[in-house]
Structure formats: C-alpha cells, structure tokens
Simulated assay, not measured.
Amino acid sequence: MVSAGELRAHLVAARVAGRVATSREESLRRYGLFAARDPRVTLGLEPEGEWGAAELLRLMADRCGVSADPRETSGEDVIDPDCTVAALDAFAERLGRAAHDRIPVLLGTGHPHRLLGFYASLAAALSAAGCVVLTPSYVRGVDIPTEFGVRRHILRYVAGVAVARPAEGGGPLTPESAPGAHTHSPLPVRAALAGAAEQGGVLPGLVVGDHGFICGAGQLGFEAIGLGDSDDPAVFVAEAEGRISVAVPLDDTVRSDYYRPLTRYVLNRAWLSQ
C-alpha cells in the first residue's frame, strides 16, 4: 500500500508534481489563449465567468500551486505535490462512491501513450466492483482539428477506455501499443455520448478522463472527474464553476510507468484494490 507521504515523494522524484517539464512560458501563453476563448484551450468548456489572464493565474496558483507572481515568466513550472495528493484523495473518494452505488462509468483519454494504463486499471477495478464500464460505439467518425488540418478519427476502446484513433491507423488495439491520438478535443466524448443516446443505451453517471473528455462531458451536464496539467486552465475553471467535480493537477507527459504508484494509491483509497 502506498502512503500519502510515499506518494508525495514519488510525485516529486518522478516530476509528476513539484518542478515539472511544462514551461512557465507555455502555461502563461495558454492562460492568455483561454482568456481570449481560443477553442484549442477551452476544451469544450463554455465558461460562465470572465476569466482574464490575471484571474486565471490566481486560480491556477490556488488549484495547482503554480507561482502567483506574474513577473515570473520563464523557467520550469511548479505543481504543488500537496495539491496533487489532496485532489487524488477526492478523486478516489468519488470513485469509491461510484463503485459502491454501481453507477455506469465512461472513461476516456486524450493522452493514450501516457495515461492509458492509469485509466485501464480504474476501468478494470470498477468493472470488478459491479459498475458498467460503457463503450458506446459511434460509426460515423469524428473530424478533429489538428495542427495539420482537420483529420478524421474513429472512436475506439482499449481495455474499456475511449480513445480517438486516426481513421487510417492500423494495428491491434491493446494497452501495450496504446493506439490513439493525443487530443484535447471534446469531440470524442461528444461522439461517445451521442452513440449511447442513439442506441438507446445507458448514459454515464460519471465520466473519468482528461482535458476534452471531462470538460466536454461537464459542459453537457455529466458529472466528471479527472486530470489536468498546469497549462490546462480549462480543467480547473470547469472545477471552479462546478462542471467538474474533481480536477487533479499533475504533469501528464511523464513516462507511463511513473503513474503506477498513483494508480495503486487511488485504488487503495477507493477500496478498489484487486
């Protein structure tokens, strides 16, 4: 069992929190883009507040532990590991209630090459506890804007976790190969929810994921919990405005195996250890 102290030490050593790879320049740039309502960083959220750059900086300092000083404009960004541990506790508590109540859950990630293993472990534990892990199909494809133009993607599930896969992609769908695109778009979760509705199927009582998956779900009125980096203000604005129940601040680009202690910690705290 991973204790809170051991987890905190791991977060800092692996740079999941503490000093992280995300640069201060990139974080501030994205706060400015969010303030301008750039859809590349709003992640499907339509914020109710004004959320100017200065207000966003204060919010991110409170929720993530980044420096609140606007004069600090360069260097490595910082995520307070105590914020991460506290948010993981709340995340685990919500998962535990979902398992206890056996509500249907939809999981999805825009970071399959880093975070798929984390979500796949949660999906397996929730399923074993009696929750329905939803995998609604959507056959028409999803046209997602990318830096190379609009590209068609197909919604696919790997170990119970939704990913957006390039339509021309091939190969087996396994957690080891982590197929799928890195995307912050809300379109994949909208497609999954549309697929469930069109098929007359069950809709989720909880959505678990990151970025567009949780912001997009929260915007549509579904309860959502998940992860966000220090340069993803939309996730924490969504939490502040009540669209997301729990937002966990962490670096989402470290090696996938560095998230395993977080997985064990969450499953233990949620009484979902297998």
Results as ranks from 00 to 15, higher is better:
212 G>P: 11
173 L>H: 03
96 G>N: 09
182 H>R: 13
25 E>A: 15
39 P>I: 12
86 A>E: 13
46 E>Y: 01
244 I>W: 02
57 L>D: 00
20 V>G: 02
51 W>D: 08
255 R>E: 15
127 S>G: 15
158 V>S: 01
231 D>M: 04
233 P>I: 01
124 A>K: 09
95 L>V: 11
59 L>A: 07
244 I>F: 06
178 A>S: 13
71 R>G: 15
273 S>F: 09
118 F>H: 13
34 F>N: 03
135 T>R: 15
266 V>D: 10
148 F>G: 03
45 L>I: 00
93 E>L: 12
192 A>G: 01
175 P>W: 12
97 R>C: 03
268 N>W: 14
164 A>S: 12
117 G>R: 07
159 A>I: 10
266 V>P: 00
169 G>R: 14
211 H>V: 03
225 I>C: 10
36 A>C: 04
126 L>V: 05
129 A>P: 07
213 F>M: 14
219 Q>F: 02
244 I>Y: 05
143 D>G: 06
158 V>K: 00
25 E>D: 10
6 E>H: 08
272 L>Q: 04
170 G>T: 15
39 P>F: 12
1 M>S: 15
51 W>E: 04
126 L>P: 12
56 L>C: 03
198 E>F: 05
5 G>V: 06
153 H>G: 01
138 Y>F: 15
92 A>N: 08
240 A>F: 04
196 A>D: 05
75 G>H: 10
193 L>N: 03
102 R>A: 11
168 E>N: 06
160 G>P: 11
271 W>A: 15
178 A>T: 13
202 V>Y: 05
146 T>I: 10
162 A>N: 09
6 E>I: 00
44 G>I: 06
152 R>Q: 09
222 F>P: 12
145 P>K: 11
40 R>Q: 12
10 H>S: 11
94 R>P: 12
100 H>T: 14
103 I>L: 14
11 L>D: 06
214 I>D: 02
196 A>K: 06
51 W>Y: 11
273 S>N: 07
231 D>R: 03
16 V>F: 02
139 V>P: 02
183 T>H: 00
129 A>H: 07
190 R>D: 00
121 S>T: 14
24 R>N: 12
271 W>H: 15
128 A>W: 10
262 L>D: 01
113 H>R: 14
186 P>S: 09
228 G>D: 08
202 V>S: 14
42 T>M: 02
44 G>K: 09
270 A>M: 08
260 R>V: 13
